[in-house]
Design a protein around this nucleic acid. Structure first.
Lengths: 173, 173
DNA sequence: TTGGAAAGTCAACAAGGCTGACTTAAAATC
DNA sequence: GATTTTAAGTCAGCCTTGTTGACTTTCCAA
């Protein structure tokens, strides 16, 4: 790699300034992702510690809240982990009375996942602190910056993941 | 939480449109971070597998490349892990001839870290694929979006981390 | 009736975090 | 000069969360 693009201006190009594509700018973006992601997860992590849960539990709670009645297979696709890995997490949440697993009505092989009152309360706590940080960042940066933020993140996703990102719905038996 | 802000428009406010601060918009941002970060790390991860290394090794290589001659303590602060955790990773990289650890000239307690030729080559491979994804995303989104992307990520960082993000330099001897 | 899909389980393993305790060497301070 | 502090490194043990592989149960659908 290290294509000519890194130089900034394309000599005969359309005249657009391509300085934002230099290796240095790209590196700053990469480091920003690394640093920001750490702090992005830090607030929920602190709450999870008190409950003997980890980030994996948070993710499960989030997407069950987001799509109540979602099936295990569905969740598997969203989270991108193995059945065994998800099952361990889910088992804990169900045992602790955070998540309810209901046998499907149409297809009895499926299990539809729902948050209990208790689970919804925990999810709300986690979402609140994470949204608080996000809201502060959004407010500080302003609407135009937020639009750009979302655009770049979306462009960074693989096409299949982008489809997931847009099309989380299903569930609901 | 769930302050009135989530409603969108402040009735008596300055007239600015605050729809970008709704809980729904914030949730989309949170999910975008989750999905994008996965794919952001996926390309280097594939390369690392072939070398029996993990993400932790990548991070070490990146920041040593970025600040040649940096000390262990310095790297510790940047990565935000324990000495024991970093040491395990660093030991592997040194044994494999990827990283060189030189006793400090001024302060002989310090060890200054440098990439070897071999280490630099691996780091270049990792950086190349990660930059390629970043470049494609930047190009697709355009310079204005990129500026917003960086602004929001920076606003998401804790102040101390933001200082680190800006002020990685030191090292050098 | 049979094949395949959805879910769940057991076992074993690895990466990469963590804590706590302790050593060595060298610098800094009293 | 003696003492304290700092930088680095090490050993041991633990946890979470990911992995593979093998196997079962249930049930839908061809």
């Amino acid at each position: 790699m290290n294509t000519g693009q890194a130089k900034g201006l394309l000599p005969g190009g359309g005249g657009e300034n391509l300085l934002f594509l230099t290796d240095d700018q790209l590196r700053k973006g990469i480091e920003a992702m690394f640093f920001a992601y750490r702090d992005f997860t830090a607030d929920p992590d602190r709450i999870l510690e008190n409950h003997a849960y980890g980030r994996a539990h948070h993710r499960a709670l989030h997407f069950i809240q987001r799509s109540p009645g979602t099936t295990v297979n569905n969740l598997l696709a969203i989270l991108g982990v193995t059945k065994q890995s998800l099952n361990r997490v889910l088992r804990g949440l169900i045992e602790d009375g955070m998540v309810e697993s209901r046998v499907g009505r149409r297809d009895k092989r499926e299990r539809h996942l729902h948050l209990t009152e208790k689970g919804a309360a925990l999810e709300r706590m986690l979402a609140d602190v994470q949204r608080a940080r996000m809201r502060a960042a959004y407010r500080a940066a302003g609407p135009a910056a937020v639009a750009g933020f979302r655009q770049v993140l979306e462009a960074m996703m693989d096409p299949e993941r982008r489809a997931l990102y847009h099309g989380i719905r299903e569930g609901g038996a």
